[in-house]
Design a protein around this nucleic acid. Structure first.
Length: 841
RNA sequence: GCGGAAGUGGCGGAACGGCAGACGCGCUAGCCUCAGGAGCUAGUUGGAGCAAUCCAGUGGGGGUUCAAAUCCCCCCUUCCGCACCA
């Protein structure tokens, strides 16, 4: 009996795979490709079992697809730029490059010890010039096309991280990374024009049928398209006007006042011309602060004040007051709205609070409430009343008509608004990709010529974390010459948001060593799109939306021929410990290396896959890991014990030679092949794939009880002499199938067992077992019989009986007779399954 | 408030209109024993019964169907996302 020593097997087979370069691949048009990718890692230092779960999920898919005949690309890399390394440098004095590369080395070791089948020859790290050179290259392509541009704007600012944040990086008014309350600043910033692709990014979500609906919905909401009209309200006694955006032009006859955001540009003019500009400005400032407060706390107390000015409603020609309100957003629409208190709840509350007029202009159903009786705004569409020439008309027709009339009268136009804003990518930090722009007094912002890329990040020795961009302090870096005129010029000193790095890395894996282009279009055409992509749902908006945007840009640049990078997406659940997400600060991390030392890689891999479906959150349990280890020991003993008999000559066997018990095991084997294959490839129910394998093992132990092959607990292993060839053949089919199907989950153990069974070539070259429906077909079936909906009997009958025969046998069955005695049979249904349902009364 | 997902034994979870609780953990009893955190056998939704068996049962209430954990309607709870978006 050979002892199961998983730690030794881990080492042995990991070395073998590396020596054989078993997972390195090249394009091969003769085979179908499969690109399997897990979101690459931020090199924080240590991967815990929560991170590792995702890599194991991907590895099950990659290993299975390889055995199923696909040419599988399964690469890994590092999202290596970012703030934590820089912050650590400020504290410890270690240069971010040093700590990042150290962390990568450690984490790579962790993944290798888990036996994840990565093509390590394609490893990338975004902080290396050979990678970020192409961040710059893509930036320049976008600059040429007007997709990268610079503008002064009010931006989100995190005082703790000392940098700008994208809208997507502000969570509940606070920094997504450190939780500091976000403030605003006016800065010159670089933006990517993602809004140019807003419609496409929105519409194409419908085609992503293999994405979780949740993610598509989140992106849809984030893009936030709404169709309406922009209408000009002239300011009375002035040549100025206020433009408003509305989706409810049908209610415009009920617009009894206009509301401005405190940040609206015209507010400054109003203040200057007011009787007491100082007081006016003070009040505006108070509302700006209030609006921010309200958004942070969710406290929704609507406040406003009258500017004293009036606007002319262009449909009614009526003068209505202009107020400033804390709940109107400067960044959405035009920063100004027409208020229709009768038909908008917010306007209603505001009007009631400040005693502003309310006018009903839409009637839905038979509601005839007067203004005084109204408890809340009526927001449904309906028939227009008191609306001049439009009275009596209905939505949606009237919306189109009124918008068209506004356009004809040159007082407005149809407009589509998005919640999505352009992506601000400038960061006032060091550890990132330098933006390849040079500022010249004569020529303004000039692109660094492609031949000068990469603009290398200079080695800065000291970090303070204070002041502006650290690169501004490096005079060798800053001072340069203008590429256009050769005159003195200064480099851009901001770096790019690290989400730029991750927006195209999956394309780089197709051709990671290319020095001329981000990737070779032909290689990308072979490997892309990613067939299976898995990672955390926290990237549902940021990374996944940016990646879809980048792929479209690269399509328009001519590098790829498609827009969607990820065909199938899986958002894996987190691993909790003591009910909380694992984190260093909570002190509840489980280090995979501790588990490897106790159980080996395979028990850990198996447990993490068995405990729950991949999308679900799971609670870590040491006891569950024990169970998986026991299962592997059980498999080991069985295979080891039978291997002597199974290693021998493969004698031909004809179907008629199989006994009932042998046929039953063959059925189980093939049924298991079918279930495990669809569970992995189609349903991604890795937990039930494992339980099917467990069932097969239980069945084989039962088989051992009744055949001369015996069981490990029953003395010496049989060498197969004197055992019928049919028995050996059946056992071999079951055992080999088991080992093959176990191999994605427990690759080290499976390789060793495969070798024990006498195979010279390893499992990385083996083929997945083939399901044979003829073998799986049962010759006898158990048919449940329902009487008035309850199962009352089971019939064991030959498979393939006709419905009439089944009906006959059912009614003849003693247990059935007992239940229908003295009653009238109303109906007998024979359903597929088969199953018989009898209705009596 | 809007949107999404979910609610099944002591626990993790099975069951894509057809036998509810597969598989595993835990627990109980027994066997074996070089006493190990090992292995084997049986049991384990609740209730009634010596038993065969019967009754109830998938958050609650209705409905569709020969048949519902599964489909439809209403309600409750939990988690997640968005949140004054005009």
């Amino acid at each position: 009996m050979t002892e199961y020593k998983p730690q030794q097997l881990d080492k042995k087979w990991q070395q073998r795979w590396t020596a054989d370069r078993a997972f390195e691949v090249e394009p091969d048009p003769s085979r179908p490709k499969f690109y399997c990718l897990e979101m690459f890692a931020y090199p924080s230092g240590h991967a815990h079992v929560g991170h590792v779960r995702n890599y194991i999920i991907g590895d099950i898919m990659a290993r299975t697809k390889r055995m199923r005949g696909f040419n599988v690309l399964h690469p890994f890399g590092w999202d290596a730029f970012g703030l934590p390394a820089e912050n650590a440098a400020i504290k410890s004095g270690t240069h971010p490059e040093r700590s990042t590369l150290d962390n990568i080395a450690h984490m790579k070791g962790q993944l290798q010890r888990l036996g994840i089948s990565y093509a390590w020859d394609r490893e990338i790290a975004t902080c290396l010039p050979e990678y970020y050179k192409f961040n710059q290259w893509i930036f320049l392509k976008m600059f040429e096309r007007g997709l990268a541009y610079r503008k002064r704007s009010t931006v989100n600012w995190c005082a703790s991280c000392n940098t700008v944040l994208a809208n997507e990086q502000v969570v509940d008014g606070a920094c997504w990374r450190c939780g500091t309350v976000v403030t605003t600043r006016d800065l010159e910033q670089w933006f990517f024009r993602i809004t140019a692709y807003a419609d496409e990014l929105l519409n194409d979500l419908d085609g992503l049928t293999e994405w979780p609906e949740k993610v598509a919905v989140m992106q849809r909401n984030w893009i936030g398209r709404s169709v309406g009209a922009r209408i000009t309200f002239p300011v009375a006694g002035s040549r100025q006007s206020v433009e408003i955006f509305t989706t409810r032009i049908d209610t415009i006859f009920g617009a009894t006042f206009v509301l401005l955001a405190p940040d609206h540009p015209i507010v400054g003019t109003f203040a200057a011309l007011s009787p007491d500009p100082e007081a006016f400005r003070a009040q505006v400032a108070a509302f700006r602060a209030l609006g921010r407060e309200a958004r942070l706390t969710g406290a929704i107390e609507k406040e406003g004040f009258d500017t004293g000015r009036k606007a002319v409603n262009p449909f009614t020609h009526e003068e209505v007051p202009i107020w400033i309100a804390n709940f109107v957003l400067a960044e959405y629409g035009t920063g100004a709205i027409m208020a229709v208190p009768a038909h908008d709840q917010r306007d209603f509350e505001f009007a009631r609070k400040y005693n502003l007029p309310i006018r009903i202009v839409v009637r839905a159903g038979d509601d005839e409430a007067t203004v005084d009786e109204m408890q809340e705004a009526t927001t449904n569409y309906g028939r227009l009343v008191a609306s001049g020439p439009y009275t009596g008309q209905q939505a949606p027709g009237v919306l189109t008509a009124m918008t068209a009339d506004a356009e004809a009268a040159r007082i407005g136009k149809r407009e589509v608004q998005y919640r999505l804003k352009d992506w601000g990518i400038s960061r006032q930090r060091y550890w990132g990709t330098p933006i390849p722009i040079i500022y010249c007094e004569k020529h303004g912002a000039v692109a660094v010529p492609y031949g000068h890329l990469p603009v290398e990040l200079p080695m800065v020795a000291t970090f303070t974390g204070r002041g502006d961009s650290p690169l501004a302090q490096v005079s060798d870096f800053v001072n340069t010459v203008c590429p256009t005129c050769g005159g003195p010029a200064r480099r851009e000193t901001d770096t790019m948001d690290t989400f730029v790095d991750s927006s195209w890395y999956y394309l780089r894996f197709c051709d990671p060593a290319n020095a001329a282009l981000p990737f070779d279009p032909e290689r990308a055409a072979y490997w892309m799109p990613v067939d299976f992509y898995s990672g955390g749902v926290e990237h549902a908006i940021l990374h996944l939306l940016y990646s879809r945007f980048f792929t479209r840009v690269l399509r328009d640049v001519g590098l790829v021929g498609f827009g969607e990078p990820f065909k199938r997406l899986l958002t894996q659940g987190m691993v909790l410990k003591n009910g909380a997400v694992m984190s260093k600060s909570r002190g509840n991390v489980v280090d995979p290396d501790d588990m490897l030392a106790r159980y080996g890689a395979d028990a850990l891999r198996l447990y993490v896959m068995f405990v729950a479906p991949p999308e679900k959150e799971v609670e870590w349990s040491d006891a569950g890991l024990d169970g998986s280890f026991r299962f592997l020991v059980r498999v080991w003993r069985l295979v080891d014990y039978w291997s002597g008999a199974l290693r021998g000559e493969r004698l031909p066997v004809v179907a008629a030679e199989y006994s009932d018990v042998e046929r039953a095991l063959r059925r189980k084997t093939h049924d298991t092949i079918r279930r495990v294959t669809t569970d992995i490839e189609e349903r991604m129910h890795l937990n039930t794939a494992v339980s099917s394998l467990m069932e097969l093992v239980n069945e084989m132990y039962a088989f051992g009880e009744v055949t001369p092959l015996g069981l490990p607990s029953r003395g010496d292993a049989s060498d197969g002499r004197g055992v019928r060839p049919a028995t050996i053949a059946v056992a071999r089919e079951a055992i080999e199938g088991l080992v093959l199907m176990l191999s994605p989950f427990a690759p080290h153990t499976a390789e060793e067992l495969w070798q024990m069974l006498g195979h010279q070539t390893g499992l990385t070259k083996a083929a997945w077992p083939i399901f044979d429906p003829d073998v799986a077909r049962a010759e006898e079936v158990v048919v449940p019989v329902q009487i008035n909906g309850k199962v009352r009997a089971r019939l064991t009958v030959p498979a393939g009986l006709s419905d009439d025969e089944l009906r006959e046998r059912t009614l003849a069955e003693a247990a059935v007779k007992h239940h229908i005695e003295g009653k009238t049979i109303r109906k007998v249904v024979v359903a597929k399954g088969p199953l018989v349902s009898v209705v009596v009364s």
